[in-house]
Design a protein around this nucleic acid. Structure first.
Lengths: 360, 360
DNA sequence: CTGTTAGCGCCTTCAG
DNA sequence: CTGAAGGCGCTAACAG
């Protein structure tokens, strides 16, 4: 029923090996022969058998992209960029195309491991793992081991928007400077004159959460050290003004209500990301406070909707698209990895209308 | 280097055939033997060779999910839901898991076809195609032919959020009632008393665009027919008050500026979807008009951010998650297809704060 | 430049 | 319930 390479060979009156060679284009073939083969392929409407090819060649054209939440544009943008960078490599003919696919872990460590196993089973050519890591040592160990196995089997591994991992299994790591970004944002607020700043953090066990929060605390500490005075924020106050929750709008809303209850004199709220910031805005507004006149609000990531929020959100812009493209190229082996294997990508403070000096 | 099924067999002191049988679980094996095999698998850290398995069995555990834009939550939600419905089928052991992957076509018909070919090459177990179709007959024909080939090769094909296609290649179609939804929305505006309604449509060549616009026009026509009077909207006016553009916020912004310029007396703007509506809101606001006091704005889809817009967006809720889950189950063969193969899913008018009666 | 020859690792009848 | 044997469709050395 299904036409095989042998059928094509017969029709083109050449050997199967020759057909394979023109299809893969990695071996000299006479132009006339090639054309005859290509014609036979078209006439027979032949489609290469991927599994057979992968089995014989011991590598497949599958590239996996792992994301924590496919419904979140943060991941969608990176994944889409990586996928197009990978897909565009295709030579046009049936040969070169890679099948770039995205796998949604839903943030679950088990599913992350499961997908990696599935990809290993398929003998994937490369794997791109995006998004913040879990801080759990057991999971990190399991993940490291799994990635090492993949690398052993010849799969290229690149991390995108995720901190470096131990071991040498990883081809390249693109890490976001979350800590630096967090610091920038809070410094901005501090410079504006804010002193009582609430922080809506992400899930406690994620590296992204930790880094951004650390940046925030660093800025606070620096201000406290330099500024002095009884009004300066200390660590105790910072703890009291931090609430953790998932990276969702609903969590941002709840957390902000809580913060406002704990300290009604808050003049600013920093959210772990833009999505959370949207929830924070809703809570602030519901409390009868104006943004930014009564309370400033800031996010992180600069997702597309942030510029449209009312007021437009002050945030830290992360070059998600560029990072995704780079990750895709690295996975294809068309870009050379950075020296040391790790590249840190800075965030850019983007000041818009949601932050302003506090009321006098 | 890599451990094979034969290694496992040797260690468990059984034949390769037996190992295969316990792994696939589709054949009786003595409990004690099974346990011995499973232990060997764990000890050797064996991972099935997907390509080899697929080659021998002539089917793989790959399931492809095609989306138009992975950075758009509309698709992310459906894809995520489908993927989890498919992944959750796993029996837990290395056997049953399917590898559900999402492929981003970027709305390009060529890439859609390319991905389908790639999936066909992998001998995918099933394919879920989401999102509106292109109205181009040539592409529809090509797509139909490709899907027929996939179906021939034993791949299950399900359409999700897309109109039915000719031929019997498709296992099941989950179509959204875009026309009905569009009608509901405009009827709502009409009932509120609006007469001059602008429409920001999507790309002209997409079925989703066409259907939603038709619903809008139907409502207008019905009102014109029943209402009469010189102020009643006619087709000419409707044409003049419709602007097409891509499904982006920027397009919504531009189109709305244009509409406002064409007819400053507009009292309502209906957008093709929520994302576009956000841009429309920005344009309305920038024109110094208030929502909904001066101009009402409505969207479509009810994406998560819509409830957070200011004011919260009136829209038509589509059960994206539920549809995705259903599509996933249909793709797995765990749900039975609807009679006739086509199931139409209605949208639900969701009235929020962005629409109100026009000013007197 | 092209044909021949062996497998790649697994599944699946067919015997036992 | 278990083992033996053949082949799935393709690629990769080797020869020529």
């Amino acid at each position: 029923m299904t036409v095989t390479l042998a059928d094509v060979a017969a029709r083109a009156r050449v050997s199967p090996a020759t057909v394979s060679r023109v299809l893969n284009g990695n071996y000299p073939v006479a132009a006339s022969t090639r054309e005859r083969v290509l014609r036979a392929v078209d006439e027979l409407d032949y489609v290469l058998n991927g599994p057979a090819s992968a089995l014989a060649a011991a590598t497949s054209d599958l590239v996996g992209i792992l994301v924590n939440d496919i419904a979140d544009p943060f991941f969608g943008i990176m994944a889409g960029a990586a996928q197009s960078a990978i897909g565009d490599t295709g030579t046009g003919r049936a040969g070169g195309e890679k099948l770039a696919v995205v796998c949604n872990t839903g943030g679950s460590p088990e599913r992350e491991l499961t997908y990696l196993t599935l990809l290993q089973r398929q003998r994937a050519a490369a794997v791109v793992v995006t998004g913040g890591a879990l801080d759990d040592p057991a999971h990190i160990a399991a993940l490291t081991a799994k990635l090492a196995k993949l690398a052993d089997a010849g799969t290229r591994v690149v991390l995108c928007g995720r901190p470096p991992m131990p071991g040498d299994a990883v081809t390249a790591t693109l890490a976001f400077d979350n800590r630096g970004g967090g610091r920038l944002l809070t410094e901005h607020l501090l410079a504006l004159g804010h002193r009582r700043i609430g922080y809506v953090a992400g899930p406690a066990e994620r590296s992204t959460t930790r880094d951004r929060l650390e940046g925030h605390r660093e800025a606070l500490a620096a201000a406290g050290a330099s500024g002095g005075g009884p009004d300066a924020p200390g660590d105790g106050a910072a703890d009291r003004l931090t609430v953790h929750g998932p990276y969702t709008r609903a969590a941002g809303y709840e957390a902000t209500r809580e913060l406002l209850a704990r300290d009604p004199s808050l003049t600013a709220v920093v959210a772990a990301n833009d999505t959370v910031a949207l929830g924070a805005c809703a809570a602030v507004r519901e409390a009868g406070l104006r943004i930014p006149q009564d309370v400033s609000v800031a996010g992180f990531d600069d997702l597309p909707f942030s510029v449209d929020a009312v007021p437009a959100l002050t945030t830290v812009r992360l070059p998600l698209h560029e990072a995704g493209v780079r990750a895709g190229r690295l996975a294809m082996g068309t870009d050379t990895p950075p020296p040391g294997g790790v590249e840190t990508i800075a965030g850019e403070l983007t000041v818009r209308a949601s932050t302003a000096p506090p009321r006098a």
